[in-house]
Nucleic acid binder design. Sequence first.
RNA 1: GGUCCCAUCGUCUAGUGGUUAGGACAUCAGCCUUUCACGCUGAAGACACGGGUUCGAGUCCCGUUGGGAUCACCA
Length: 465
Amino acid sequence: MSVVTRFAPSPTGFLHIGGARTALFNWLFTRHHGGKFLLRIEDTDRKRSTQEAVDAILDGLRWLELDWDGDAVYQFARQERHAEVAHAMLAAGHAYRCYCSPEELEQMREQAKAEKRPIRYDGTWRDRDPSEAPAGVDPVIRLKAPQTGETVIDDLVQGRVTVQNAELDDMVLLRADGTPTYMLSVVVDDHDMGCTHVIRGDDHLNNAFRQAQVFKAMGWDLPVFAHIPLIHGSDGAKLSKRHGALGVDAYRDMGFLPAAVRNYLLRLGWGHGDDEIISTAQAIEWFDMDGVGRSASRFDMAKLTNLNGHYLRNADDRELVQLTIARLSANHGVNVGAVGQARLLAGMAGLKERAKDLNELAENSVFYVRDGVQPLNDKAAKLLDADALATLAELAETFATLEPWDEEALDAAVRAKAEASGQKLGKVAQPLRAALTGSNASPSLFEVMRILGRDETMARLRGQS
RNA sequence: GGUCCCAUCGUCUAGUGGUUAGGACAUCAGCCUUUCACGCUGAAGACACGGGUUCGAGUCCCGUUGGGAUCACCA
């Protein structure tokens, strides 16, 4: 039997980091087993579902490079089929009509709470004769769930989990207005889509029991469940918008690389020995549910950042140049011409090992693409005192006729200058760096000068004095 | 509150009855160095607690504590 999985987000907001990990695990599991990874948009809540959210989720998945098979299924479009199943269950005696009003239900819950009894539907209409139905009330259709015995889920992550059927009440399958509830829709869709494995967040574990009852009532095969632990914020509380749950687009904006995010999310709750840096190809080969832990984990921005630095340093220079150009334009309003692009490519090796994310990379790259005298940051301005300026003027003299214009010669010239004036190399090099880059920190000075070229170097030096 | 789940360094984890309890991030110290990074070396740092079972328990069982999830005509 070939594996079929699905990722089923509800489009009520962005694709958050927990959802992204669920998608990743589904995708990895499926690619590992050579199956199909389907996407289903659970948009049955018409009030909260938005097209923007659908777009955000799709964009997020694409950015993470998690491709799904076939077209996305929109759950709302399938409500007639869902209703059809509810009626089939009604006809088969696995469901019944309930005429309780929302007020009655509310009262029932209040009372249960007051008496400290479990809060659940009491089955008022379960065996009541339909002729007793109050006039003018649209009934809901409830599942006629077994009241004795137990329901067992053999979960790939959680193990064998058992719940007494007496703990479960008769949930609503079809609302009074004839629309299906989530519990019904999920089961029908998972069945119709042929899902063999349902991999989703831990928060659905309790739902699995009731869903299993619907599968059973319909005589359908139960998919294999795998409920993965949730991701918590750094404070241990559930990741919510207040606790820094961000959409994947936020991570993109912060300058993270999708490969780094994938690697981070993979290691959050899944392990393969001591391996930390795991390529996607390697992950597909290794990934399976038995490596998934059972406890919730905390989101750690520092580790993501470290991983991102690693992927940045190992990324292709040409790709980074393109990404940097985009950020330079977006963040700094700088348009990069042919000369700037050539300098970025030449300097990328030195640039990328000094950045943790793409925003930092762009910021550290500005001096390569902005011609002429560079604006100075505070520390750079301090470096350029009168003495330093005098030294720089002398250095400019030397540079004017230096041959060849390469790192070795540049290095020798600057060292000679420092030695001649009895100064430490840093005393000469730092002002030089400040004048050329506008900053007190940059890639290797000689590399910078080589890439900038003699004319630009001279222009920047002379512009300071 | 009922039900279900979880529990190894600050964080992510390795560990499947016998280990000096390993790695990674973060932290600290040092080396490298023209700066900043990278890199390298080293340090500190954990089996929540209490009972069992066993020759022997981080590993198995029970309890306690702590954390989490869920209890809708939301998904």
